[in-house]
Design a protein around this nucleic acid. Structure first.
Length: 554
RNA sequence: GCGCCUGUAGCUCAGCAGGACAGAGCAACGGACUUCUAAUCCGUCGGUCGCAGGUUCGAAUCCUGCCAGGCGCGCCA
């Protein structure tokens, strides 16, 4: 059992005991915190229980704290010291020997240390990237990809059954525009003086695609007839999607399912969604169009789902898609969207509420990435064709550095991504700092002096030799790891892992620099190797969650 | 005009669903390699937490109002 849980239990028990003995009066035990204080003098863990009980018990917090401490019955060898501090905090100092219990646990669990069963039995879907197949992925998509993948990893590590999904908008106008763009680029290549349409996709990738199309013997009709353009659009869409798939693979991201919007129509999901809303009286006709009464669920206004032309809207597809998702039985669905779609959230949530799966849907917004090159912003628009692709970023700075940098920010904060900084392999680039810690340890275990010793079953007696403050602190950090993973998963915040790893690496580097692990004393060596083996295991686990490699050497 | 996100050290950002004197990296300055990888370590310098009120025993954190930056407000996707 974890230290925090033990404390919570003995504190609750103490309060109940005091109540029974008539020393404290309270209706029900209020919610209290147990947390790691910022300052070491305040102990390993501290609780505000006395402060939050004060109003109910009608006594000063410090007095309550003192009563609670008197009634405490901790397990033997657990507590070194308990203090009342400040306004009434209870500070707990845990026996060093107790912390070292985590080391055998890590050795035993190996790469599974850090996993938990928090989400056991829960099916979760993470839908991310879902970029329209009208052009290559750009750097903003990269952030979404890194984040979605790390989230999925976190959820999987905490015992959820996770599915990664990519939604393909392959219906409607944009496929037609894509076909039109291909058509005119092909005509240009054939030497015809045509004028490229203003609403076409300007990027050079369309020229490449046209070249490829012609090289494969594709035919270009005389006139831009609709059917021909649709076919060209499908061709281009397929090729672009294949490119996206490849880019994502090289970025370390794979999906369990690529979901086609078209299939929603083929399988009747859109009609099913309409029928369901109709039944509930939430759609109506006006000016020839069909409207969903989104304003009844907190949206600004009602929204069109079928235009007067008879064509359904993107929103209609999305309602149907989410209905389909929940019919698949997910306990939770996480949608990762670019922040430029945030205005769309209320209407989808309105639909979710109307169909009563609102509490199972979580829409996360990924703020935009401002790309810099040597401090200068780079303008990006897909249509205008000026943008830095994810492919370029992977080629220039590498998958590991890119993913790590994307995950050093909260998702709802804007991100400045400087290509030149990301490329540098120095201290400004935290990914190498963490990877280097791992590589250094790998090197230690390759030393002749480490032979055989690392295999030794670590026993508690041995850990008495770990008396340095940094050794105890490092162990405490390792012990905290599973909780950090759970917190990151529960709050959908992968950046917590990034920060944890940077701190762990920092502690390790400092320890490494000041002390030798392989020493004259075989027992001490054994103990220290057991400790740093634990560090190495946790570093590898954390990097794995982020989708960043843990190199054996650098 | 309305809505969402952001505003913490010169720069880039953390701050764990309010807690004890606000943290890290970079930059600047000064040190440390005959020793398991110096992509490292040690030290110094640096902040009215955008501003003003409010709630609380206690606020960077919650509420209100301003200010600044970003994004979005279609029978587009």
């Amino acid at each position: 059992m974890r230290v925090k849980e033990i404390l919570r239990e003995i504190l609750s028990t103490s309060a109940q005991t005091a109540k029974t003995k008539g020393e404290l009066a309270f209706e029900s035990l209020p919610v209290f915190e147990i947390e790691t204080p910022k300052l070491a003098e305040h102990g390993d863990l501290a609780s505000n229980i006395a402060l939050v009980m004060a109003s109910q018990a009608k006594r000063p917090p410090r007095q309550i704290a003192s009563i609670l401490i008197e009634n405490l019955s901790p397990p033997p060898g657990f507590l070194a010291k308990v203090e009342i501090a400040g306004p009434g905090f209870i500070n707990f100092f845990i026996e060093d020997a107790y912390w070292f219990r985590v080391l055998p646990e890590i050795h035993q669990l190996g790469p599974a240390y850090g996993n938990s069963d928090l989400g056991r039995g829960k099916r979760v879907q993470v839908e991310f990237v879902s970029a329209n197949p009208t052009g290559p992925l750009h750097i903003g998509h990269g952030r979404g990809a890194a984040l979605g993948d790390a989230l999925a990893n976190l959820l999987a590590a905490t015992g959820h059954q996770v599915e990664r999904e990519y939604y393909i908008n392959d219906v409607g106008n944009q496929m037609f525009t894509l076909g039109k763009s291909l058509y005119y680029r092909a005509k240009e290549l054939q030497g015809e003086a045509v004028e490229f349409p203003e609403d076409g996709y300007q990027g050079d990738y369309m020229k490449d695609l046209a070249r490829q199309y012609l090289a494969e013997g594709g035919s270009v009709p005389e006139k831009p007839e609709e059917a021909a353009l649709q076919a060209l659009g499908r061709y281009a869409g397929d090729r672009i999607l294949a490119g996206i798939n490849q880019d994502l693979k090289d970025f370390g991201v794979t999906f369990d399912r690529w979901f086609s919007e078209t299939s929603l129509y083929e399988e009747g999901w859109v009609e099913r969604a309409f029928a369901r809303l109709k039944e509930a009286g939430l759609v109506y006709e006006r000016e020839g169009a069909l409207w969903f009464a989104a304003s009844r669920f907190g949206d600004d206004k009602d929204r069109v789902v079928r235009r007067s032309s008879g064509a359904t809207t993107y929103f209609a597809s999305d309602i149907a898609y989410h209905l389909q998702k929940f019919e698949r039985g997910f306990d939770q669905v996480v949608d990762l969207w670019g922040a430029d779609h945030h205005g769309y959230v209320p209407r989808l949530m309105a639909a979710a509420q109307a169909m009563s799966f609102k509490d199972r849907l979580r829409i996360m917004l990924v703020q935009l990435v401002t790309l810099l090159r040597q401090g200068e912003p780079v303008a990006m628009t897909t249509r205008g064709g000026t943008f830095v692709t994810l492919r370029e970023v992977i080629d220039e700075v590498g998958k590991d550095a890119a993913r790590f940098i994307f995950l050093t920010r909260r998702s709802d904060a804007h991100l400045d991504f400087d290509l030149e900084v990301a490329k540098q392999q120095n201290a400004e680039n935290p990914v190498y700092y963490v990877q280097y810690a791992h590589a250094r340890l790998a090197s230690v275990f390759r030393q002749p002096g480490a032979e055989g010793l690392e295999e030794a079953e670590p026993n508690q007696e041995l850990f008495r030799l770990l008396s340095l403050p940094e050794e105890v602190d490092l162990t405490k950090r390792l012990a905290a790891y599973p909780e950090v993973v759970e917190g990151a998963a529960a709050n959908l915040e992968p950046h917590r892992i990034t920060y944890f790893l940077t701190e762990l690496a920092s502690q390790l580097h400092s320890y490494y620099r000041n002390h030798r692990f392989i020493t004259e004393d075989a027992d001490l060596t054994r103990a220290r190797l057991a400790l740093v083996k634990g560090v190495k295991t946790v570093l590898a686990h954390g990097l794995g969650l982020l989708g960043v490699s843990a190199p054996e050497s650098m």
